[in-house]
Lab assay of single mutants.
Amino acid sequence: KLLSSIEQACDICRLKKLKCSKEKPKCAKCLKNNWECRYSPKTKRSPLTRAHLTEVESRLERLE
C-alpha cells in the first residue's frame, strides 16, 4: 500500500492505542462500548529543516 492511502484509526482508538477496525460511521470498538466515534483530519507533519537536523546532530555528539 502507498503511504498516502493508509487509513487512520478513529480518535479514541488512537488515543487509547487500540486496534481500530476503521469502519465508518462507527468502528467496532466504539460501537461495542457506545463511545462517540470521530475521525479527525490527518495532520500534516512539517518537513525537517536543516537547522533542526544540525541541532539534533550536535546534541547527539555531546551525549556520545
Results as ranks from 00 to 15, higher is better:
residue 56 V to S: 00
residue 52 H to E: 08
residue 6 I to P: 12
residue 24 K to G: 11
residue 2 L to N: 13
residue 46 S to G: 01
residue 8 Q to D: 05
residue 23 E to R: 09
residue 21 S to C: 02
residue 39 Y to T: 06
residue 27 C to D: 08
residue 60 L to K: 10
residue 25 P to C: 00
residue 47 P to K: 07
residue 62 R to I: 14
residue 9 A to Q: 07
residue 44 K to Q: 15
residue 12 I to W: 15
residue 31 L to A: 15
residue 31 L to C: 13
residue 34 N to C: 14
residue 46 S to L: 00
residue 39 Y to P: 00
residue 19 K to P: 07
residue 52 H to D: 05
residue 23 E to Y: 03
residue 6 I to H: 11
residue 23 E to A: 12
residue 26 K to E: 10
residue 59 R to M: 07
residue 32 K to L: 07
residue 48 L to N: 02
residue 21 S to Q: 03
residue 17 K to T: 02
residue 8 Q to I: 08
residue 26 K to C: 14
residue 19 K to F: 02
residue 45 R to Q: 09
residue 24 K to R: 14
residue 3 L to V: 12
residue 39 Y to N: 04
residue 63 L to R: 09
residue 18 L to C: 11
residue 48 L to E: 02
residue 16 K to I: 00
residue 12 I to Q: 11
residue 15 L to R: 08
residue 55 E to I: 09
residue 47 P to M: 06
residue 22 K to Y: 06
residue 4 S to D: 13
residue 63 L to Q: 04
residue 54 T to E: 09
residue 39 Y to F: 08
residue 4 S to H: 12
residue 63 L to N: 00
residue 4 S to M: 14
residue 2 L to F: 08
residue 23 E to W: 06
residue 4 S to V: 12
residue 20 C to Q: 04
residue 19 K to L: 07
residue 29 K to G: 03
residue 8 Q to N: 09
residue 8 Q to K: 08
residue 45 R to S: 01
residue 17 K to P: 01
residue 28 A to M: 15
residue 20 C to L: 06
residue 47 P to N: 01
residue 13 C to V: 07
residue 30 C to F: 06
residue 24 K to W: 15
residue 64 E to M: 15
residue 11 D to W: 04
residue 37 C to D: 09
residue 7 E to G: 10
residue 64 E to P: 08
residue 51 A to G: 04
residue 49 T to I: 05
residue 19 K to S: 05
residue 29 K to F: 06
residue 36 E to Y: 06
residue 4 S to R: 05
residue 32 K to H: 09
residue 52 H to C: 04
residue 58 S to K: 13
residue 39 Y to L: 06
residue 48 L to H: 03
residue 53 L to P: 07
residue 49 T to Q: 08
residue 22 K to I: 03
residue 48 L to M: 08
residue 54 T to Q: 09
residue 38 R to Y: 14
residue 56 V to A: 00
residue 46 S to Q: 02
residue 53 L to A: 00
residue 54 T to G: 09
residue 52 H to P: 03
residue 6 I to T: 12
residue 45 R to E: 08
residue 2 L to I: 12
residue 49 T to M: 07
residue 56 V to W: 00
residue 47 P to E: 07
residue 34 N to M: 14
residue 20 C to M: 08
residue 32 K to S: 09
residue 17 K to V: 04
residue 1 K to D: 07
residue 7 E to Q: 10
residue 57 E to H: 07
residue 44 K to Y: 08
residue 14 R to A: 07
residue 19 K to G: 15
residue 62 R to L: 12
residue 35 W to H: 13
residue 49 T to K: 00
residue 25 P to Q: 08
residue 61 E to N: 10
residue 42 K to E: 05
residue 22 K to F: 05
residue 5 S to R: 11
residue 24 K to H: 13
residue 51 A to E: 05
residue 23 E to T: 14
residue 42 K to H: 09
residue 32 K to E: 09
residue 34 N to V: 11
residue 56 V to E: 01
residue 19 K to W: 04
residue 3 L to Q: 09
residue 54 T to F: 05
residue 9 A to F: 01
residue 31 L to S: 12
residue 60 L to A: 13
residue 21 S to W: 01
residue 23 E to C: 12
residue 33 N to T: 07
residue 50 R to Q: 07
residue 61 E to H: 14
residue 21 S to P: 04
residue 11 D to P: 02
residue 45 R to C: 03
residue 18 L to R: 03
residue 51 A to R: 11
residue 27 C to A: 00
residue 58 S to V: 13
residue 63 L to S: 03
residue 8 Q to L: 11
residue 3 L to A: 14
residue 44 K to G: 03
residue 1 K to P: 15
residue 8 Q to M: 09
residue 50 R to V: 06
residue 29 K to P: 05
residue 36 E to F: 08
residue 7 E to C: 12
residue 53 L to E: 09
residue 13 C to E: 06
residue 16 K to G: 00
residue 7 E to N: 11
residue 19 K to I: 04
residue 55 E to K: 09
residue 34 N to P: 02
residue 50 R to N: 00
residue 35 W to F: 13
residue 28 A to Q: 14
residue 49 T to A: 02
residue 12 I to H: 12
residue 54 T to L: 07
residue 7 E to K: 08
residue 28 A to V: 14
residue 4 S to Q: 11
residue 34 N to H: 11
residue 42 K to Q: 09
residue 53 L to D: 02
residue 38 R to E: 15
residue 57 E to L: 02
residue 34 N to R: 11
residue 6 I to Q: 13
residue 33 N to W: 01
residue 33 N to A: 10
residue 30 C to Q: 00
residue 28 A to L: 12
residue 41 P to Q: 05
residue 18 L to F: 01
residue 5 S to M: 11
residue 22 K to C: 03
residue 58 S to T: 12
residue 57 E to M: 00
residue 27 C to M: 00
residue 40 S to L: 04
residue 31 L to T: 12
residue 64 E to F: 01
residue 11 D to R: 05
residue 12 I to S: 07
residue 9 A to G: 11
residue 59 R to P: 03
